[in-house]
Amino acid sequence: MPPSTPPPTVRRRRLGTELRRLRERADLSATEAAARLGITQSRVSNIEAGRYGVSADRVRAFARSYDCSDQVLIDALAAMTGERKRGWWEEYRDTLASGLIDLAELEHHATAVRIAQLINIPGLLQTTDHARALFREAVPPLLPHEIEHRVSFRIKRQAVLYRDKSYPYTAIVHEAALRMQFGGPAATKAQLEHLIDMSQRRNITVAVIPFDGASFPTSGHGVDYVHGPVPQLDTAVLEGAHGGALVDSAAQLEKYHLTMERMEKAALGPTQSRDLIHRIVKAT
């Protein structure tokens, strides 16, 4: 049997989605767009579905055909092409949910990330012991080697915070997450101390929403808001047990952008947040 074609990356799928949106704004069918571009309708459809790669020159040709004059957006879309080497996360594709793979890819290419968590420490700020304790509580139970596989994936994701030119990362964490005793008192104390240390890095902000703080909008699950090179290429990731559900429509992005802003306003400032975490450490 011939080797199977690897699934399209989240980046390629998003590029296809944005090209489809440009076509629809131009009020063109796929058949009409293909006639303008001098290609087949099936090729247009496959590019929009992320099944076919496309060059930067072709992206610019699409934009011209669709009468798009937003040069900043066009440049950002063109920059999403040409990647032939797949990222480290691809080695996990056969063993982990696709949503987790997509999240790692989004984090790698982001220009900034904001995350809100109510009962968990954000994955990029977790210690190895904390992550391992979380995976031990998985339902159905994971085998020991499966736990270690997931831990290694989570720790590798954290490399984005240590790059020479790492992007701004803001973690909005509810006090409830800080008081969860995953792994026992020793592991919890080490996790909180790690959180304090990470919050003092130049690119990282930790903002805690205290129990007695203001009300804020939430749907109960974690939200990652991943900023792209232009606002149109932002992505909201709604976390779940099998990875994240990606949201990228303009209306939904606006909703989650405002939600994150209101949650951040309900949180303590960075210094007050560290002071609260210190108090919880002492009580642990």
Rank of each mutant, 00 (worst) to 15 (best):
A97Q: 08
A131L: 05
R20A: 09
A177W: 07
A207S: 06
H109K: 10
E146F: 04
S166Q: 06
M80R: 01
P7T: 03
G99V: 06
L233V: 07
R58Q: 13
G82C: 05
A283Q: 08
T127I: 01
G220I: 01
D234Y: 06
A33Q: 12
W88E: 01
V281Y: 03
R23K: 04
Y256T: 01
V113D: 03
G269V: 07
L161R: 00
A112T: 08
F182A: 03
E193V: 10
A283V: 05
G213V: 08
R93D: 10
A245E: 15
R11A: 02
I39H: 11
T259Q: 15
F211V: 10
S45Q: 04
R21T: 04
A76E: 08
V247R: 15
E261A: 15
M263W: 04
E137D: 11
S69G: 03
R14Q: 14
L253G: 08
H108Q: 10
Q272D: 15
K156C: 09
S215D: 15
A186V: 14
Y256V: 07
A177T: 12
T127M: 01
V139K: 10
A35W: 09
S199G: 12
I209G: 04
E24F: 04
L238D: 10
A159W: 08
T259E: 14
P231G: 00
S219A: 07
R262M: 13
R179N: 01
F216M: 13
Q200V: 11
S152G: 12
M180F: 12
I119W: 14
I39Q: 14
L268Q: 05
E18R: 11
V59F: 01
M260H: 13
G183T: 03
V230L: 08
P270T: 02
Q232M: 07
T17Q: 11
T81W: 00
Y92L: 07
V59A: 03
I172L: 13
F216Q: 06
P8D: 00
E90R: 11
G50V: 02
D275R: 14
R84G: 15
A76M: 03
T284V: 12
R279E: 12
V226P: 06
E146H: 07
E18V: 00
C68I: 03
E107G: 05
N46W: 06
A79P: 00
D67K: 12
D70Y: 08
G53D: 12
R201T: 10
V206P: 08
A171D: 01
H278D: 14
D248I: 14
R84F: 06
I280E: 02
V151D: 06
A30R: 13
T31G: 08
